[in-house]
């Protein structure tokens, strides 16, 4: 069984985000970039399925300028077998990404496609579901557990009220939530080995996808700051303030 994992290059989750002075976007100049944490979980899950003998090949794909090769190499160091970069000048929106991934799915014919549930930059939470609609594949989003069976997969999903399990016929799409697994660290020998693994480059044009955006970014602002309030001495003062000053009790 072949697994396709889609990964995104994003700002490192430890970096404090700053908005540009002209409010055109956030400032990504000289900022540390990394594999999106949910995508890292997706790679880890695919590699574990390979280690269990359920999958025989793990292919990672990323979309964007040449810099995304860095994240593809990271995924290869974590255990993926080969990588595909779909070159675009900018980062396309979720629908264009889903269309590009559909093209890759048609070529690679994976039985399972694993994606992060969302990227921590745009926070859209769309791509996996859109890919599902475009390919006609069933989806198990926000997965905290995956059980593979013959020709199907049971996905336990984190939903607002608790957990839900769905059974999907393969080929299927899974998007990862945080508790699916804890990704490993790449070892130095694996990082060296990853440099020699195959990495193919294709383009959105070759896949016949138009990446023009229909949603324009007009402005980016920092959120309203909350200022620190007062310290109270004890419970009596706290309850008094909540009753008489804030009037919330």
């Amino acid at each position: 069984m072949k697994i396709l994992v889609a990964v995104k290059r994003v700002i490192d989750y430890n970096v404090k985000v700053r908005v540009k002075a002209d409010q055109s976007d956030v400032d990504l100049a000289n900022v540390k970039m990394a594999l999106n944490p949910f995508c890292e979980i997706a790679v880890e899950e695919a590699v574990r399925l390979k280690e269990k003998g359920i999958a025989d090949e793990v292919v990672v794909v990323s979309i964007g300028p040449k810099a995304v090769q860095e994240q593809l190499r990271t995924a290869l160091a974590l255990g993926a077998d080969r990588a595909i970069q779909v070159e675009t000048d900018d980062m396309p929106d979720s629908l264009a990404v889903a269309k590009i991934l559909k093209g890759v799915v048609e070529k690679e014919e994976p039985q399972l496609v694993i994606l992060g549930k969302q990227a921590i930059d745009s926070d859209n939470n769309q791509t996996g579901q859109m890919l599902g609609a475009l390919t006609g594949m069933p989806q198990g989003t926000f997965a905290s557990k995956i059980d593979m069976a013959d020709g199907s997969v049971n996905v336990t999903r984190e939903v607002d009220g608790g957990l839900q399990t769905v059974k999907l016929q393969l080929p299927a799409i899974v998007t990862t939530d945080l508790r699916l697994n804890e990704p490993r660290y790449a070892s130095l020998p694996n990082i060296m080995k990853a440099k020699r693994k195959p990495l193919d480059v294709t383009t959105a044009d070759e896949l016949g996808v138009n990446v023009a955006r229909t949603v324009k970014l007009l402005k980016v602002e920092p959120p309203a700051e909350r200022s620190a309030g007062v310290k109270v001495a004890d419970v009596a003062e706290l309850v008094d303030k909540l009753k008489n000053e804030a009037k919330v009790l």
């Binding site: 629908l95 889903a98 791509t127 996996g128 859109m130 890919l131 989003t141 939903v159 607002d160 949603v215």
Partner: peptide, 23 residues
Amino acid sequence: ATTTGKNFMPRVAALLDVAQVSD
């Protein structure tokens, strides 16, 4: 934008060939 809304709405957008504005 609950887990139900997040689950099905991007499928609606993709089937209509439009972007989704989330959250």
